[in-house]
Design a protein around this nucleic acid. Structure first.
Length: 497
RNA sequence: GGGCCUGUGGGUUAGUCUGGUCUAUGCUUGUUCGUUUGGGACGAACAGACUCUGGUUCAAAUCCAGGCAGGCCCA
């Protein structure tokens, strides 16, 4: 049978990303999609461990930047939402009054999450007087408490974060890690004395995101979102988009500068040095399990996943080969794994009673970056045989195993890094004029300095979406694609997930 | 938001159009035993399913209605 090989592994070619992705998340044991609620997958041990590895990097970054972890309740009473709604309504009116209406887009959604939340209306046999909803995000819950915590300028900055589950009633098609109804969510919320301090926080957030993206070797773009794509209640929003293999962008993180808008709605004030009350300035920084979706999507290949070493649930799988021929094999495997574990590597010994070939495929599908084979021949020569998931095999000396393994993992990291930037360079191309034919799988870089109305034209004619102003503008002025006016504003057009 | 489609063991699949031959087919997985073990071994035995509720009928996996769940396409 010609496709026997493929059929047995059951992995569609990665070329066909829409088939590959949903297949691989199940075949590699990340999730079980058979749980009977749309958009709520079961995390399997391997998938959860991968997520935990990513979360650990996040925890480290939060620790490094003096954020403190908190944990807020899942349920929020409905009446608190009214403060938020009033704020959103207020901002909307201000925006409508302050901006030329011709420049405003008419298709703005009703702001807020109200339609997309799950409600709890009963408790036991009783109807609740005040219904509660499952948090879609925690602004409302947190900003109800912040005023109780902040008294004076000495309490600021307040830098908190939590990693929790949030809920959104998605009506669109769901996809593991990418669009789900129960979201594994990271959110940092901060409060500061003034706008400038809050702005510095935004800068810190962007630095953290960049570091995390680098650790996970993800190709990304950071853009200040257009007004209509700004989070309700935010002064501005910066979106971090990963460029997936099919050229679609996936927003994996967002950072919001709220100025004092939420503080006014929730009465979050502090006493300054002169004893006068001032409103705080706040920021939010959010990420989700989409990070894992991006890691899966970006690095995997026809043979399965490839985890970047920093987030690999198992970094090195050690495999005794033909152990029955020489008792030294298992002994060596034990010693080596112990040494590596003590050096901080995540290790797995695979001594299952299976044909070696089958074990190899297993770990390739699961994306373990490095495999060490130790057999009678290797023991005799004082080697382990190292096979990198990104390609290439070589014997490495056992007496220097820690350094050697580190070196091998570095090679994998570099390879993934190179692939990632190649992908970025290949996907993003310049669009000089609207007459150019738009191609599937491309992201277009443009110089654009037009109005909202111009933007709408741009989106309609290209069938793409504007990501917003790139964080790094052009060095030299270029003619705007619509008006021809010279500008350094660099923007991107893409298909978004 | 609009439209189309699907639901059979753990996975996948035959059977549905045209009700009876279906106490339901093949492959795979799982368990046990034996032989094997440096890139997917083989033999034997066993285990395991018609999405739910209602209707039509002498008779429903099959037809009808609804629910739940899933997939695809378009805004």
């Amino acid at each position: 049978m010609a496709n026997h090989d493929k059929a047995k592994r059951g992995i569609p070619p990665k070329e066909d990303f829409n088939a590959w992705y949903p297949a691989i998340v199940e075949i590699a044991d990340l999730v079980d999609k058979r749980y009977p609620i749309k958009g709520m997958d079961v995390w399997r041990p391997y998938g959860w461990k991968a997520m935990r590895c990513i979360d650990n990097l996040t925890h480290q970054e939060m620790e490094r930047t003096d954020h403190e972890e908190v944990r807020f309740p899942l349920l929020i009473p409905e009446d608190l939402l009214e403060k938020e709604n009033r704020l959103v309504a207020l901002l909307k009116r201000a925006r409508e009054e302050g901006v030329d209406p011709s420049e405003l887009r008419m298709d703005e959604d009703e702001a807020g999450f109200k339609k997309e939340v799950y409600w709890v209306r009963n408790a036991g046999e009783n109807d609740l007087d005040v219904p509660m909803f499952l948090r879609p995000t925690s602004e409302t819950a947190m900003y109800t408490m912040f005023p109780l915590w902040v008294r004076t300028h000495a309490d600021l900055p307040l830098k908190t974060y939590q990693i929790v589950n949030t809920f959104r009633y998605e009506t669109k098609q769901t996809r593991s890690f990418i669009r789900v109804r129960e979201i594994h969510f990271f959110e940092a919320h901060t409060a500061h004395v003034d706008e400038e301090c809050a702005t510095r926080q935004i800068e810190e957030d962007l630095e953290i995101v960049s570091r995390l993206m680098e650790m996970m070797k993800l190709p990304f773009i950071m853009s200040k979102r257009p007004v209509w794509d700004t989070f309700p209640g935010a002064w501005y929003t910066i979106g971090i988009d990963v460029i997936m293999p099919n050229g679609r962008t996936l927003q994996v993180a967002s950072v919001h500068h709220y100025k004092d808008q939420w503080a006014r709605a929730f009465d979050l004030k502090y006493a300054d040095e002169n004893g006068e009350h001032q409103y705080c300035h706040q920021t939010t920084y959010g990420m989700s399990e989409r990070l894992l979706g991006a890691v899966v999507g970006i690095h995997g290949d026809d043979n399965g996943l490839i985890f970047p070493p920093l987030v690999a649930p198992i970094q090195v799988v050690i495999m005794p080969v033909a152990a029955h021929k020489n008792p030294l094999v298992n002994e060596t495997v034990e010693t080596v794994s112990q040494i590596l574990r003590e050096s901080g590597f995540r290790i797995k010994i695979d001594n299952r009673d299976l044909r070696p070939g089958q074990k190899y495929w297993d770990w390739e599908i699961k994306g373990v970056p490095l495999r060490l084979e130790i057999g009678p021949r290797d023991v005799e020569n004082g080697n382990a045989f190292a096979a990198r998931r990104t390609g290439g095999k070589e014997p490495i000396p056992l007496d220097d195993i820690t350094n050697q393994v580190r070196k091998q993992l570095d090679i994998v990291e570099n390879e993934l890094s190179n692939r990632s930037s190649e992908h970025l360079d290949g996907c993003v191309i310049q669009l000089m004029s609207l007459d150019t034919e738009i191609q599937e799988g491309q992201i277009y870089e443009i110089a654009f300095d037009g109005t909202d109305a111009d933007a709408e034209v741009l989106e309609k004619t290209t069938g793409l979406v504007i990501l917003g102003d790139s964080i790094t503008p052009f060095d030299n002025e270029q003619p705007c694609i619509i008006s021809g006016k010279m500008t350094t504003r660099r923007q991107h057009l893409a298909r978004m997930y």
